[in-house]
């Protein structure tokens, strides 16, 4: 069963993801960057890293970009093989070029979604992370 982590200080955003991800796997919730890093670190230590982590940016104390860097550091320190590292999706209302670049080139995120996010966008991310089957067989392995 797929494992998800949603890190956002907005209860409405956490509830949105909880609803979209219901029935698709286990979903843990964190209310800020510190708790997000703690949960991700524990999962890495248990050798059960999350399949997909949805990370807000603007949160108190530890931003999503800092949290993403820390998660990548923990994955490297634990020696996780590339296929076991989490697919990290930044989910933010910020859509300026500098932030989107930093998230994906410096902080190590795999993808970026701009709020407001709809369920279809989440599904696209799950397909891209390989935890949900895409409807289009053209992405199949034998076609790679």
């Amino acid at each position: 069963m797929a494992r998800f982590l949603v890190v956002d200080d907005s209860i409405s955003v956490r509830q949105f993801f909880q609803g979209v991800l219901a029935g698709r796997g286990e979903c843990d919730l964190a209310v800020d960057g510190i708790e997000g890093v703690r949960l991700a670190g524990r999962a890495i230590m248990d050798r059960q890293p999350y399949d997909v982590i949805f990370l807000d940016i603007m949160m108190p104390q530890v931003s999503g970009l800092t949290a993403c860097r820390k998660i990548r550091e923990m994955e490297r320190a634990a020696g996780l093989p590339p296929e076991r590292v989490s697919h990290v999706v930044i989910v933010s209302s910020l859509s300026d070029p500098a932030t989107m670049l930093e998230a994906q080139f410096e902080s190590g995120a795999d993808a970026y979604l701009t709020k407001p996010v709809d369920p279809g966008a989440v599904r696209e991310m799950l397909c891209s992370a390989g935890v949900e089957q895409t409807l289009l067989a053209v992405l199949s392995d034998e076609d790679a």
Partner: peptide, 26 residues
């Protein structure tokens, strides 16, 4: 820009549905 998946060291296969705007990336 509603979504992006950029950078890294791996290539990407992409499928774009023109009727829904959905993009699937591998």
């Amino acid at each position: 820009v509603t979504a992006s998946s950029v950078g890294g060291t791996l290539g990407r296969k992409l499928v774009f549905r023109t009727d829904t705007g959905e993009v699937f990336v591998k």
